[in-house]
Amino acid sequence: MTPEDQKLVTLARSARARTQAAEGAAVRDVDGRTYAGATVDLPHLQVSAIGVCLAMAVSSGSSGLDTVVLLTPGRATPTDLAALEDFGGATVLVNP
């Protein structure tokens, strides 16, 4: 694992630990910017950790992703994988 990928793992772990969420994720976009987030599970809003990161990247004007890290007790959902394919994520590391 490269140092840049390790940075994403650290960001994902920190996001998950900070909120005690089920999942943590971090992404690096094609311009080198990083975004990290954790699962949002409110009574009226549920967003996966990958969904949070994708929303942050898209709303910041990113044109695509280079690397995605997901820390989860399970697997990435089909919806998250489809969204990553839509936006472009070359590498998905789950539970590194």
Rank of each mutant, 00 (worst) to 15 (best):
M1F: 14
M1C: 08
M1D: 07
T2L: 10
T2H: 11
P3Y: 12
E4H: 09
E4W: 15
D5I: 15
Q6C: 11
Q6R: 15
K7Y: 06
K7C: 03
L8V: 07
V9D: 06
V9H: 13
V9Q: 10
T10K: 14
T10A: 15
L11F: 10
L11W: 05
A12N: 03
R13F: 13
S14P: 05
R16L: 13
R16H: 12
A17E: 15
A17V: 11
R18N: 14
T19V: 14
Q20V: 13
Q20E: 15
Q20A: 15
A21Q: 09
A22E: 13
A22M: 10
E23D: 15
E23S: 08
G24H: 15
G24A: 11
A25N: 03
A25Y: 03
A25D: 04
A26Y: 05
A26E: 11
A26T: 12
R28V: 10
R28K: 15
D29M: 03
D29G: 12
V30E: 12
V30M: 11
V30Y: 07
D31I: 09
D31M: 12
R33A: 05
Y35M: 03
Y35D: 00
G37Y: 02
A38F: 01
T39P: 03
T39W: 03
V40C: 00
D41M: 12
D41G: 01
L42Y: 12
H44I: 10
L45W: 13
V47A: 05
V47E: 08
A49F: 02
I50S: 00
I50Y: 01
G51W: 04
G51Q: 09
G51Y: 05
V52Y: 00
V52F: 03
L54C: 01
A55C: 08
M56C: 13
A57G: 06
A57E: 02
A57I: 00
V58A: 11
V58Q: 13
V58S: 06
S59D: 07
S60L: 07
S60Q: 13
S62Q: 06
S63H: 13
S63C: 11
S63M: 10
L65E: 01
D66S: 14
L71D: 02
L71C: 03
T72P: 02
T72I: 05
P73G: 09
P73E: 09
P73H: 11
P73C: 07
G74Q: 05
G74S: 09
R75M: 07
P78D: 10
D80Y: 00
A83H: 01
L84C: 13
E85L: 10
E85V: 12
E85Y: 13
D86C: 08
D86W: 05
F87Y: 08
F87R: 00
F87W: 04
F87K: 02
G88T: 07
G88K: 03
T91D: 03
T91M: 06
V92H: 02
L93H: 11
L93A: 08
L93E: 06
V94P: 00
